[in-house]
Design a protein around this nucleic acid. Structure first.
Length: 602
RNA sequence: GGACCCGUAGUUCAACUGGAUAGAAUGACAGAUUCCGGUUCUGUUGGUUGGGGGUUCGAAUCCCUCCGGGUUCACCA
């Protein structure tokens, strides 16, 4: 919160002077004053009564008096029960405002100047290459990308990384189905996006495989046996062995089909508007970690079972026994992750490694951290699993087996179409050419989607309601975009009016007649840098989303009550234009942190 | 069964991580504005924060217990 540091220094001095006690600054509880009370910042004094040995009211009054006399930004105070509400000087707010206007990168810190500064790694997306991205991935990439941007804005060096799960039995399933049923079909020949094409064969595999099992079962075979003996499954496993033996034909096919998928993913990522600094492939990292396990075995951190498989016993930590190497010496998921984390650390010396992964893997990451700690890594506290919960739809739960998965590409297209429909009904952009119009539909459609998903706390399971998300009213992306577009419209108008069009040169600290609505809006706006750092610390784009909504509402209250361009005097107009323009600027920057564009007109 | 997560107005979400009378949005109803852009604004309605107990000056938040929902406990990744 703005002025918090300034005020807390003087409060500490007050306590020292009044009661001759040194209090650590972390012990002060300061908060924004609730709007039903007069004031800007509130000190909760209950905790201080032990020191003052007076009632909360008396303590609050004494500190308030001291601040009024000695604190340069405090003007008035009042005490309600155990709460000391401090009113800050209007000049202080205006001064902050003027400084903010002059600061081109207001709210965004510069990245560390030191080239050796340790980066924060944000790993997100992490798709399989056997099917297209779906709604769950959308929550993942929006979160990952936005958290990375927030961390940057808070002054960290950030690297966005992606690890693609490009190998394993699931890819082989698509491959064998394509070989069998594909007739050489390609993205070009079919006109399908590569990831969708490969996904299609993954589904084909499943269908044909089920049929085979059924036939074998009818022939008298037990179900479990049939599942293993079905020719397609045998073929897929054969293919995996060939892949591991570097069989040329298999590798070529694998490369070809993965290439299709990557092209498809690229289109989707581009559409969503996310990017990566580095992409890892599991085919290149899956052998990592084995050596680390061997070393751990020497140190008796792990133990061997008679079949040669290697385990760790975590039961003393309240967890289970966990396999880390198979009997045949090959590694499993957790082994790879240990290896990859180790690799990343040696590559980046990260200060933090954030895994954006669904909360289904809470247990996995708990185990990962614990094992690495036992192995003696000193930076395991810097591993952070940013878990997010499932996204539900009004129609019910997403289930890939029942075909109710919502495809990412389809969803984005639908949102764009819906935006087009609504925009056309409003009929405000008839002079747009078709490119401009298309761009706008995309901005609105994706803005609706992104805002709706990001405004919710990641750990909470959420309901995505497409119709509600694109409503131009309420706590939605389009509502905020609309607020922005309207401000821009006002400013365009102002630029045609003599005597006010030079408003950007007006020094706002000279303004003397600020009203309640203006002050309220201003307080929100100058608090932006604190919102950014708070959001970054909590890895929470939702903090920013809710803030933008508050700003928009506050602007609308002001806008509704006071004329901007044609106000009673030129000075008021200029001040209000500065305030409006600054509002637009903050909305734009804040929305960018969520990956959302704002249109000049809509 | 063990472990972890979640439960807040009819609905979708907040609550600055222990602070004031738990807030918005949406829905419904009543009104204002008709102006820079209609989608703006003001009211009214709606809550035993799943139930119970405890800690505290103070609990949606921490502890215990029960209820309900979810995830996980693979030689899949």
């Amino acid at each position: 919160m703005i002025f918090e540091d300034l005020l807390s220094v003087d409060i500490l001095k007050a306590i020292k002077s009044l009661y001759d006690v040194n209090v650590p600054s972390g012990q002060l509880v300061l908060q924004e004053t609730k709007k039903e009370f007069e004031g800007d910042i509130t000190l909760v004094v209950f905790a201080l009564t032990k020191i003052s040995k007076k009632s909360p009211e008396e303590t609050g009054k004494a500190i308030g008096e001291y601040l009024k006399q000695n604190c340069p930004v405090a003007s008035e105070f009042n005490v309600v029960k155990g709460f000391l509400n401090v009113v800050l000087k209007e000049e202080s707010w205006l001064e902050i405002f003027q400084n903010a206007l002059a600061d081109k990168s207001f709210g965004r810190k510069q990245p560390p100047a030191d080239a050796a500064a340790r980066p924060v790694l944000v790993e997100y997306a992490s798709p399989n290459t056997n099917k297209p991205l779906h709604l769950g991935h959308i929550r993942n990439v929006l979160l990952g990308w936005s958290v990375a941007e927030l961390l940057k804005a808070a002054g960290h060096k950030v690297e966005k990384v992606n690890i693609v799960n490009d190998r394993g039995i699931h890819i082989c399933k698509s491959m064998i189905a394509w070989k069998k049923f594909g007739n050489g079909e390609t993205p070009e020949s079919s006109g399908m996006k590569g990831d969708h094409l490969v996904g299609k064969y993954y589904v084909e595999f499943d269908k044909a495989y089920k049929k085979e099992i059924e036939e074998l079962a009818q022939g008298g075979m037990k179900k479990e046996e049939a599942e293993k003996k079905a020719p397609l499954m045998v073929g897929a496993q054969e293919m995996l062995r060939k892949w591991e033996a570097h069989d040329k034909d298999t590798i070529d096919l694998w490369k070809k089909m993965n290439g299709w998928v990557y092209n498809g993913f690229d289109v989707t990522y581009k559409m969503i508007g996310v990017d990566f600094n580095k992409i890892y492939y599991e085919s290149e990292t899956y052998l990592l970690g084995k050596k680390i396990i061997e070393e751990g075995l020497q140190k008796n951190i792990f133990y061997k079972k008679p079949d040669n498989s290697v385990w760790i016993d975590l039961s003393s930590d309240g967890l289970d026994e966990k396999l880390v190497l198979r009997g045949d010496g090959t590694s499993v998921y957790i082994t790879q992750d240990i290896g990859t984390a180790d690799l990343r650390y040696s590559e980046y010396h990260f200060s933090k490694l954030i895994f954006v992964v669904a909360n289904e893997q809470d247990y996995h990451f708990k185990v990962l951290k614990l094992i690495m700690k036992k192995l003696g890594y000193e930076w395991t506290d810097n591993l952070f699993h940013l878990a997010y919960a499932m996204v539900d739809l009004p129609s019910g739960k997403m289930k890939s087996r029942e075909g109710t998965v919502v495809d990412a590409d389809e969803l984005m297209q639908e949102m764009t179409d819906e935006a087009e429909k609504i925009t056309k009904e409003l009929g405000k952009i008839e002079d747009f050419n078709s490119d401009e119009a298309q761009q706008l539909y995309k901005t609105i459609g994706l803005g609706a989607l992104k805002y709706y998903i990001l405004k919710v706390d990641p750990e909470k399971r959420m309901l995505f309601n497409p119709a509600e998300s694109i409503d131009f009213n309420g706590n939605t992306g389009p509502f905020i975009q609309y607020t922005y577009a309207r401000i821009r419209s006002v400013i365009r108008k102002a630029m045609t009016v003599e005597n006010v069009k030079d408003f950007s040169g007006y020094n706002v600290s000279n303004y003397k007649a600020m009203n309640e609505k203006e002050k309220n809006l201003l307080k929100f706006l100058v608090n932006f840098p604190f919102i950014v750092s708070d959001a970054a610390n909590r890895y929470s784009p939702a903090v920013v989303a809710n803030y933008i909504f508050e700003v928009s509402k506050s602007f609308n209250h002001f806008y509704h009550e006071y004329p901007i361009v044609d106000s009673e005097n030129k000075e008021a107009s200029k001040f209000r234009l500065q305030l409006s323009s600054f509002t637009a600027q903050i909305i734009k920057i804040a929305m960018q942190l969520l990956g959302i564009d704002v249109p000049e007109r809509m």
